[in-house]
């Protein structure tokens, strides 16, 4: 897999911590591989929205990558509940169902961005940098930016 310049947390130079939520283990593993290629660290995983809420409370990740169509509780509702409890939560919806009303609903209920599957690593990388804003920094070869 292509390697990207690591994105670190600005405040302490540590790897960005991710919570990956998808009912497909295969999709979770693929996303985990991608975020690791961005220099990130997998803080937790969940296979449904309900578990995502408890995992968020347990791990306090920097970014959540959240699928939409899942059993028990769908991703948009889970995102809304997480943001209600943690207004600073950065949630990126990652779904194959990318029609406009779904995207708008997700953004209105607290998600920061939307990435359509199949996920292109270069697209996810740019979205993560955008969502982190000043809280993220791209490390240079010399270690600048961390």
């Amino acid at each position: 897999m292509e390697q990207f310049a690591p994105v670190k947390r600005s405040k302490d130079g540590q790897p960005v911590r991710y919570l990956i939520v998808d009912d497909s283990v295969f999709a979770r593993k693929n996303l985990a591989r991608m975020v690791e290629s961005f220099g990130g660290h997998l803080a937790g995983e969940a296979g449904d929205g309900l578990t995502a809420i408890t995992e968020y409370d347990r791990t306090h990740p920097d970014i959540v990558l959240m699928d939409i169509t899942m059993p028990q509780m769908e991703g948009i509702e889970a995102a809304e509940r997480i943001v209600q409890s943690h207004p600073d939560a950065r949630i990126v919806m990652v779904s194959s169902v990318g029609y406009q009303e779904n995207i708008v609903a997700a953004l209105q209920r607290g998600a920061r961005h939307f990435v359509q599957k199949p996920v292109k690593p270069e697209v996810l990388y740019e979205v993560i940098k955008y969502v982190l804003g000043d809280d993220g920094a791209v490390a240079t070869a010399a270690g600048a930016g961390v």
Partner: peptide, 18 residues
């Protein structure tokens, strides 16, 4: 198989929804 189905159908639904 499930992930392929998810992606293929999700993308088609996106187009049909539009």
């Amino acid at each position: 198989a499930c992930e392929l189905a998810n992606q293929i159908i999700g993308n088609a639904i996106t187009a049909l929804n539009d």
